[in-house]
Design a binder for these strands. Structure first.
Length: 464
RNA sequence: GGCGAGGUAGCAAAGUGGUAAUGCACUGGUCUGCAAAACCGGAAUGCGCGGGUUCGAUUCCCGCCCUCGCCUCCA
């Protein structure tokens, strides 16, 4: 195992080695469950999944924690709007999230804690922070973290090199009582708009602040020190900066050793937003006929540190690419006379090396194709084909790519009238009545079936 | 305005101090009555702009332009 990964904090590529033993501890900021996640959210989760798969293929174990934010402004607001108890509301969207994750072939985290279930942990952490002089309760019962009490604040996002936009310092009317505008909430006192969603604490009724949940859960499941913390780039500031401050001040640990941030997905060259109508969910794409596997391919086929431009053309390209991989895989299987366990990259060593070099997925995919093109699977001797097949499976497993069914079958599934049309066309063709044959072929195409002529007969393929 | 990430063929996207992967699209051939699919080939002549360093820069340095993100609860 020799994965080099860029670290946001040190701004350098660093070799990843578990702090303890052979298990790499990974914390990922999860979704806020108040609606369906969009493909931009999933870019982050899919890349984290590839990361985990590469680590595991490389021979290490992982301990993967990804939280669910099931209490915050949006979940509360929308559950009240829906007239549902918060827990029921977020459970529904959590189920949807899990279904989407499964469709995208994401490995489930080992722990997936929710914020609501860990409120005591968060309260305990706040008590520690207050006791150590890093936090204070305001008059209204909210508790804030005192940013000036942590000199290292801002290291991750290089705050010291930045000049905050004057407007950004505008006070939030909800958060009066803060000593400094930079201080952030650990506990938010109960407000009328929270409805029935409040919990009791030493500071009165209220609910936990968003940043704290990740610190508390990371501590609970991974300990004071762990290997990698990951999320979308937009979380660098303030979320991750705040997590570092809370965790380092509440424990004696160093918190995460390595920060892994994934760049955003763009659509048609611009940002994704509801108002532009270019914010897609997995279901939106499914309605247009694209599979989750095709979506996954699109999402991983760009380096994680660079913005990736999503287009429907790239989805079409992914479909073709996956078909090509499937054909090659089948050719290798035929040549090898069976499958074998994916134990090593074999002839795909160059592709694997690219994955180990800062998770260069597009480079690795390019290398997979280049290797296949060189190998010419159909003509390989059985032994070489078997090694290549195992290697291909090794790479596909690391990327989490599931190959589609080859588009060969279909004739059996065709309805009787389609079969009749096809047979009629074949007869016309035998009679060298090309005009009739072509007309019938066109009708079949309009009905959604492509005709493929063989030597002694025809085949149908579902087309639309 | 500050900080960060980017600008590579029609689209997407790797990579490199010395003739620029890969996928899609395009195109020639095989096959076919013609196609489709598949297979075997091919072309692109493309590294944002201007300087500098260098024998040589897309790659390093400087300046500029453009895009995207963050700038206090957006993956």
């Amino acid at each position: 195992m020799a994965l080099k990964l860029h670290d946001t904090l040190s701004r350098a590529e660093r070799l990843l080695q578990p702090l303890e033993g052979q298990t790499l501890k990974l914390y990922c900021c999860g979704p806020t469950v108040y609606g369906p996640a969009h493909i931009g959210n999933f870019r982050t989760f899919v890349l984290q999944d590839v990361f985990r798969r590469v680590i595991e293929q490389g021979g290490l174990a992982t301990l993967h924690v990804r939280n669910l934010t099931d209490v915050d402004d949006k979940t509360i607001r929308d559950s009240l709007k829906a007239g549902q108890p918060l827990a029921d509301f977020t459970r529904g969207w959590t189920d949807k999230f899990h279904a989407d994750c499964a469709a995208l072939n994401l490995l489930p985290p080992h722990f997936e804690p929710g914020a609501v279930a860990h409120i005591p942990h968060q309260i305990r952490m706040i008590e520690t922070l207050i006791a150590r002089g890093h936090a204070y309760a305001a008059a209204d019962g909210s508790v804030y973290f005192k940013v000036t009490s942590f000199p290292a604040y801002g290291r991750l996002s290089h705050l010291d090199e930045r000049e905050l936009k004057p407007a950004a310092a505008a006070t939030d009317s909800d958060e009066y009582g803060k000593d400094s505008v930079a201080d952030f909430a650990l506990w938010k006192s109960r407000k009328p708009e929270d409805g029935p969603n409040f919990w009791s604490s030493p500071w009165g009724e209220g609910r936990p602040g968003w940043h704290l949940e990740c610190s508390a859960m990371a501590l609970e499941y991974l300990g004071e020190d762990f290997d990698v913390h990951s999320g979308g780039v937009d979380l660098v500031f303030p979320h991750h900066e705040n997590e570092i401050a809370q965790s380092c001040c509440a424990t004696h640990g160093h918190f995460a050793r390595h920060w892994f941030h994934i760049a955003h997905l763009m659509v048609d060259g611009g940002k994704m937003s509801k108002s532009l109508g270019n914010l897609y969910t997995l279901d939106d794409l499914a309605r247009r006929g694209y599979t989750a596997a095709e979506t996954r391919y699109v999402l991983i086929n760009g380096h994680y540190r660079a913005p990736l431009n999503f287009t429907f053309h790239s989805l079409d390209a992914s479909r073709q690419a996956l078909q090509k991989l499937a054909r090659n895989e089948q050719a290798l299987r035929t040549a090898a006379g069976g499958t074998s366990a994916p134990a090593a990259p074999g002839p795909f060593a160059a592709a694997w090396a690219l994955l180990e070099d800062d998770l260069n997925v597009p480079g690795a995919l390019g290398e997979v194709f280049a290797t296949l093109n060189r190998l010419k699977p159909a003509g390989l001797p059985a032994e070489e084909a078997a090694a290549a097949l195992a290697g291909l499976h090794f790479l596909l497993a690391a990327l989490g790519l599931q190959l589609p069914e080859l588009r060969e079958e279909g004739t059996e599934a065709a309805p009787a009238e389609i079969l009749a049309l096809a047979e009629q066309r074949w007869q016309a063709k035998q009679a060298r009545d090309w005009a009739t044959a072509d007309t019938l072929r066109k009708s079949l195409e309009e009905a959604g079936w492509l005709v493929k002529d063989g030597k002694d007969g025809w085949q149908l393929t579902r087309w639309a």
